[in-house]
Amino acid sequence: MNPIDFSALTIGDTVVESEIPLSRATLIDYAAASGDHNPIHWNERFAREVGLDGVIAHGMLSMAVVIAPLVEWLGDPGAIVDYRTRFSAPVPVPDAETGSPATPTTALKMTATVGAVDAAVGTARIDIAVKSGEADVLSRTQVRISR
């Protein structure tokens, strides 16, 4: 494994960009894996009854899928010291009109940039912007890493 070279990080540089497709099947898989079975994440009628426009992704699913590409880039999962975000807008995940329920109907776009770096100590902060369409669905998403 090649550890991150902190002296090569420059504030403002984009280090990872990725687009993550989401489908109703993604939500069901996350519900099973996480134990979060809130029906707003899988039942259209229930979601509407509680005032949503339809089924939405778990905030924690969004938080999980946008860190995965960054962790792969880091190489060592133990490099992450702190990971935080705010859920600023819901991510609607419509049912696919035809075909498999695993057909993606939306996507998250993540862009990870260097927010701060201390090469001498070997720490950095990576900021992740997360959009669904034009909407910022997560905000103040920060990852603190250390060698």
Binding site: D29, A32, S34, V65, A68, V71, P77
Partner: peptide, 22 residues
């Protein structure tokens, strides 16, 4: 299962040897 559900594809989530080598 959590790795598969969240796009965490790194070997060390699935393969013990990959994890112990780290």
């Amino acid at each position: 299962e959590f790795g598969l559900a969240t796009g965490a594809k790194a070997e060390y989530h699935f393969d013990t040897e990959a994890a112990t080598s780290l």
